[in-house]
Nucleic acid binder design. Structure first.
Length: 645
DNA sequence: GTTTCGGTTCTTTTT
DNA sequence: GAACCGAAAC
């Protein structure tokens, strides 16, 4: 069976899919079939006889990787089986598990997620007696360290810039940074940035390793290229240097992650870096009404430095975006709910509707109003599944069993016991010689003797699992460890600690089901550190049973689409955000964010502009409409004025 | 010295 | 919700 490419793709897409070998840049505007093009490109390569294991497909999120592999499998079946696909962090992890010893790491290094990393930074600052009122918090420090790693600049420079208006001693920040690096070494741990940095070091410092992968990968494809940072771009450049069969897909208009290190220049300079690049542009939009595209095209056109392009509509004109002027936040919430009700009466499903905003707190009034009126909604939450307290709690037992030197896991696990906090747990860990040896039949007893009396009964519930872990070789079955831990201890613990314990226990049962796809606990652990969203990976029956209206930040809505979209708080200082108002580069990025927001809508787009904003001390502050609205021609909108409702 | 508890503040994001 | 801070209890 062969695929009818001509039939499945438009001329723009087909040209990109069938591009000859060599460097290719595909500029794909919103809604022009970017994912389709990439998956058909994979299918096309496979049909031309390229072995799947010789294709590397880089994505930014696990979700994107998953989706693309699934769609490619539908096209060419199991032939894509051996394809290397995933996030940069996954690929780096996969390579480092094999070659980390070259960089002085053991192959069983642990991966610190953000929570772990933050805890470690906090511990370093406390140890150096620097933690105090005047000193930056762990998450601020970590963001500086991380940004420095991702853009390859000295921590000192960035710290000086970041703390220029604060009485912060940059030397002290550097001391914390050094301590953090030392502690990571000691724990045989890498944080997310280390995965990228060391993944690149592998290629820079070990030509033989690079040669091996250069040989393996005949074709490299990169999705969302506009979001790559300096490290990722160089990693790809090195890997593609010899064969130059590199196809990157992206949209400079949708570059909205520079604040976390994405380097806009990577996509802009691609044709210069790769002589002979073929550039393809996808501008035929299948998603939105022409009136919505007119607005998106008009707002983005004024941005400097971009591959100019204008999206072409395929649909027929029907309805302009609606500009809604409102009194303040509460009337905005009532208006949106009222409009949502009307959409539902007209036959829309709740899943057809999304409300988008610049920052999560912008939707507070709306969340209250939706709750009050009993409309089902879901918020893309800020907390990631695998970083929720209860998930990390149960995983800490698996971690310490698999890797006895995992101090963070040990401290977390013992911290669950009454009368034990960080200090007590650390003391015990040191008395055990810096590790909990699961193979030692006395290990559990040793811990018990060192515990304060009040903690011992709880520990006696957990301790048998350590012996069973060895006796029954449970390392192949992380789910069983978690199951026994819950039965023996954690379910009771959850009931006393969390008021929503039912939901959390359900989560953990989901986690146990999730473990079945892994053959051993090590794979499970390194995977969950890199995974953020269980819903994307497993079927979500609960969500499907009850269709819900989606509330999301614009950032999290990227790549998605809905028939009806509401944008809240279209005011200067909110969208664009206050912090971006004085810097032209950040303002341009906010404008791209607005472009992303508008292009999520297929049929109906409502832009809400309140006139007043409540502030802390009971007052109200007038706020002006967003520049993104005032700078485009008025006739692009249908206006609606809603006073008090 | 540690742990626990209650009040306050903040919430662009991915790995 | 959760992270942080300060005060009270152990």
């Amino acid at each position: 069976m062969s695929i009818d490419f001509e039939h499945a793709l438009n001329a723009e897409q087909l040209a990109a899919v069938q591009a000859p070998d060599g460097p290719v840049l595909v500029i794909a505007a919103a809604g022009t079939g970017k994912t389709r093009t990439l998956t058909y490109r994979v299918a096309w390569l496979v049909e031309r006889g390229i072995e799947a294991r010789r294709i590397l497909l880089m994505t930014f999120t696990n979700k994107a990787a998953h989706e693309m592999l699934e769609r490619a499998t539908q096209l060419v079946g199991s032939a894509v089986g051996g394809l290397w696909g995933g996030t940069f962090h996954h690929m780096a992890n996969r390579m480092l598990r094999r070659h980390a010893y070259l960089l002085g790491y053991k192959p069983d290094f642990t991966i610190l997620d953000e929570d772990d990393a933050k805890g470690l930074v906090r511990a370093c600052a406390t140890e150096l007696k620097l933690a105090g009122k005047e000193f930056p918090k762990a998450d601020v420090l970590l963001s500086v360290f991380s940004f420095a790693a991702n853009i390859e600049q000295p921590v000192r420079d960035l710290a000086e810039k970041r703390f220029s208006d604060h009485p912060v001693n940059v030397d002290e920040v550097l001391r914390v940074h050094e301590a953090y690096i030392a502690r990571k070494r000691q724990l045989h741990a890498m944080d997310f940035d280390d995965l990228l940095v060391n993944g690149l070091r592998l290629f820079r410092e070990h030509p033989d390793v690079l040669a091996h992968y250069e040989e393996q990968f005949e074709h490299i494809l990169v999705d969302e290229y506009q979001d790559t940072n300096t490290l990722q771009a160089e990693w790809v450049d090195r890997l593609a240097a010899r064969r130059r069969n590199l196809l990157v897909v992206g949209d400079d208009f949708q570059s909205i992650y520079s604040w976390r290190g994405a380097n806009f220049a990577n996509i802009m300079s691609f044709p210069k870096r790769y002589e002979g690049t073929t550039v393809f542009k996808l501008v035929t939009n299948y998603r939105s009404l022409p009136e919505i595209l007119d607005l998106a095209n008009a707002c983005i056109a004024g941005n400097p430095e971009q591959f100019q392009k204008t999206m072409k509509a395929t649909r027929t004109a029907h309805k302009k975006p609606v500009l809604v002027r409102l009194r303040e936040g509460d009337s905005q919430a009532r208006y949106v709910v009222e409009r949502i009700r009307r959409c539902l009466r007209q036959g829309r499903a709740p899943t057809d509707i999304a409300v988008l905003y610049r920052a999560h707190f912008h939707a507070m009034e709306l969340q209250m109003e939706l709750t009050r009126q009993g409309l089902p909604f879901m918020v893309t939450s800020g907390v990631r599944f695998f970083e929720q307290a209860h998930v990390k709690d149960v995983c800490s037992l698996v971690r310490i069993l698999v890797h006895g030197e995992d101090q963070l896991a040990f401290v977390r696990l013992l911290g669950l016991l009454p009368k034990v906090g960080e200090k007590t747990a650390l003391k015990i860990f040191h008395k055990l010689g810096g590790k909990l040896d699961a193979a030692d039949p006395e290990a559990a007893v040793k811990v018990e003797r060192l515990l304060p009396e009040g903690a011992q009964p709880a520990w006696r519930k957990i301790a048998p699992i350590i012996a069973q872990f060895n006796a029954e070789k449970l390392t192949g079955d992380p789910g069983e460890i978690i199951f026994r831990f819950m039965a023996a201890f954690y379910e009771d613990h959850a009931v006393t600690c969390f008021d929503n314990h039912d939901r959390r226990i359900e989560d953990l049962q989901g986690l146990i089901n999730f473990t079945t796809r892994y053959e051993n606990a090590e794979d499970f652990l390194s995977e969950i550190a890199l995974l953020t969203n269980l819903d994307a990976e497993t079927e979500a029956p609960i969500e499907q049973q009850r269709p819900m209206i989606k509330l999301s930040s614009v950032h999290q809505a990227k790549g998605l689409e809905w028939p009806v979209v509401f944008l809240l708080w279209m005011n200067d200082g909110l969208f664009p955000s206050q912090r971006s108002l004085d810097d032209p580069a950040t303002e341009a990025e906010e404008r791209r964010l607005f472009y992303v927001a508008t292009t999520r809508a297929k049929d109906e787009l409502y832009l809400c502009v309140p006139e007043l904003r409540r502030v802390r001390e009971g007052g109200a502050m007038p706020c002006i409409p967003s520049r993104f609205i005032t700078e485009v021609p008025n006739e692009l909108f249908e206006e609606e004025y809603v006073g008090f409702i």
